[in-house]
């Protein structure tokens, strides 16, 4: 009788749910997530909705940055492409938003591939340069098609058959479902042949080329995937708002996305992105909501808005220099420490 859990097949070793504790965590997590809107009230539910939306976008960027080793500063604008495309497609075809999200995400993937096209054959930072140009050009296009900074998302589009999705709670369940599917897909892409090819390109592109990986194709694919997830996030975002304002998709949004990935944990596609989005997006808005009033009353209103930039920027730089694995790396060390406690190794 073996003492412990032994894996005999490759499938068992590579499974997402390997140990009993994984199954228990899945059951408990699912139950918790389903019951969440009842437990935390409407304000925190809306925060959770935003968190889910931005996690999807961060997952896309994490595949590009963490797996393929490229940085992109266009994730915010691509999310905007997804949001606008969703609304316009839904309006043109007289369908609901949910039906329009998938075509919009595919369209976004095409746009991102097209804009990244010049840089796929080049090394290192060239994709970053192309993405900056893409971000600025897309911002300009948004400002042309949406000069009022308000493209309404009609309530009668926010339906799924007979169900209305105007309520935060119903939005929560729909978006949670979409985010869960997206996360599962991303996790599977990460551990499939495509994911391994991306990692090879990240670690040494010359060596990757030699073992027969088409580096340009893998980079293009990674950028397209990042675009697809950004488009998906944009579509889900359109579902949550009453009107789309393109100033939500500026260079700052892209930088925030990059910050989520780098602080959360590059390469840990799902959990790293979730942690990053939790800290950078949700954590920040909660902190801001509680602090900015006090600071403004003390006459330090500037500090309240400036501190966001200073703290975020310092976090990104500090994590890159001191903890390249991100928050998830810290968590893993804590977990190891607790597992081995009271021994040090």
């Amino acid at each position: 009788m073996p003492a412990g859990v032994f894996k005999e097949k490759y499938e068992e070793l590579m499974g997402l749910l390997r140990y009993p504790i994984h199954w228990a965590a899945l059951a408990a997590g699912t139950a918790l997530l389903l019951a969440l809107p009842l437990l935390i009230g409407p304000y925190y539910t809306s925060l959770a909705v935003t968190l889910a939306v931005f996690t999807v976008g961060a997952i896309g960027l994490n595949m590009l940055t963490g797996l393929a080793g490229q940085i992109s500063l266009a994730q915010g604008a691509l999310m905007g492409v997804g949001a606008y495309a969703t609304v316009f497609i839904a309006a043109a075809l007289h369908t609901n938003i949910i039906a329009a999200i998938l075509p919009a995400a595919i369209l976004t993937a095409l746009v991102s591939t097209l804009l990244g096209l010049p840089s796929f054959r080049l090394k290192g930072y060239y994709l970053a340069m192309a993405s900056i140009a893409a971000q600025m050009i897309l911002e300009y296009i948004f400002s042309v098609i949406d000069p009022d900074q308000y493209t309404p998302v009609p309530v009668d589009m926010k339906t799924l058959g007979p169900i209305s999705l105007a309520q935060t709670t119903t939005q929560y369940y729909i978006i949670l479902g979409c985010a869960a599917i997206a996360a599962l897909a991303a996790a599977n892409i990460g551990r499939s042949a495509i994911g391994r090819a991306m990692k090879a390109v990240r670690d040494n592109d010359v060596a990757a080329e030699i073992i027969g990986i088409d580096v340009a194709r893998v980079k293009a694919l990674a950028f397209a995937l990042a675009g697809f997830f950004a488009g998906l996030a944009g579509g889900l975002y359109a579902l949550t708002v009453t009107g789309i304002d393109w100033t939500a998709f500026t260079l700052d949004t892209s930088i925030e996305y990059l910050a989520m990935v780098l602080v959360g944990g590059p390469g840990r596609i799902v959990w790293g992105s979730l942690l990053g989005a939790m800290l950078i997006r949700t954590g920040w808005s909660m902190l801001e909501a509680s602090l900015s009033d006090t600071l403004t009353m003390m006459g330090l209103g500037i500090l309240a808005s400036a501190s966001k930039y200073i703290v975020l920027g310092a976090l990104v730089a500090a994590f890159l220099v001191l903890e390249p694995e991100g928050l998830i790396g810290i968590l893993r060390r804590v977990k190891e420490y607790l597992r081995l406690w009271p021994y040090s190794y």
């Binding site: 500063l73 290192g124 930088i255 910050a259 400036a306 200073i310 920027g313 990104v316 890159l320």
Partner: peptide
Amino acid sequence: PVVALMAATLGAYYVLRGVSMV
């Protein structure tokens, strides 16, 4: 990787903006 340095300078971009804002 050079990409890490670029991302780090991007962090500095944010810090500098905050500092000049104050």
